[in-house]
Computed example of a mutant assay.
Amino acid sequence: MQTIKVGNMSVKTGEKASGYVEVKDTEIELPVTIICGDKEGKTIFISGGVHNAEYVGIQTAIEIANEISPSKLTGNLIILPLMNRTGFEHRTMSMVYEDGKNLNREFPGNQQGTVADKICYTVVTEFQKNADYYIDLHCGDGYEDLTPYVYCVGAAAPEVVKKARAMAEVVNVPYLVQSPCGTGGSYNYAGSCGIPSILIERGCLGIWSKEEVELGKEDVRNVLRYLGVLEGDVSKRTYNPTDVGTVIYKNAGHTGCWYPTKRSGDTFKKGEILGYIKDYFGNVLEICVAEMDGILLYQVSSLSIIKGGSMVAYGENPNQK
Rank of each mutant, 00 (worst) to 15 (best):
W258G: 10
Y239S: 01
G206F: 04
E231L: 05
V213L: 04
P241T: 00
H254G: 06
E218W: 09
E231K: 15
L215G: 00
R237V: 05
V234S: 08
I207V: 15
Y226Q: 04
T261R: 13
L230W: 05
N222Q: 04
G245C: 10
V223I: 14
S235F: 06
W208T: 11
A252L: 09
T261Y: 07
G245R: 08
G216R: 00
D233G: 11
R221A: 15
I248R: 04
H254E: 09
E218L: 06
G206W: 04
L227P: 14
P260K: 12
V213I: 14
V234G: 09
G245N: 10
K236E: 15
Y259S: 08
V234E: 13
L224K: 01
G206V: 09
V220L: 01
T261A: 09
D233W: 01
G245F: 08
G245P: 03
E214A: 13
L215Y: 08
G216H: 02
Y239A: 04
L224N: 07
R237M: 03
T238F: 10
R237C: 05
K236L: 10
G216K: 05
G253R: 14
G256V: 06
R221L: 09
Y249R: 00
I248M: 10
G253S: 09
E218A: 02
R263D: 13
W208V: 05
K217C: 06
T255K: 07
D219W: 07
W258D: 05
K210H: 03
G232D: 04
S209Y: 11
N240M: 00
T255L: 04
N222S: 11
N251E: 15
D243C: 06
R221M: 14
W208M: 07
Y249K: 00
D219T: 00
C257I: 15
R237W: 03
Y249V: 10
Y239E: 00
T242H: 10
R263H: 11
G245M: 11
K217A: 05
D219V: 02
V229E: 03
N251C: 11
G256L: 07
A252H: 08
W208Y: 15
N251H: 06
Y249G: 04
C257G: 03
R221C: 14
Y239H: 15
I248E: 10
L215V: 05
V229K: 02
L224H: 04
R221T: 07
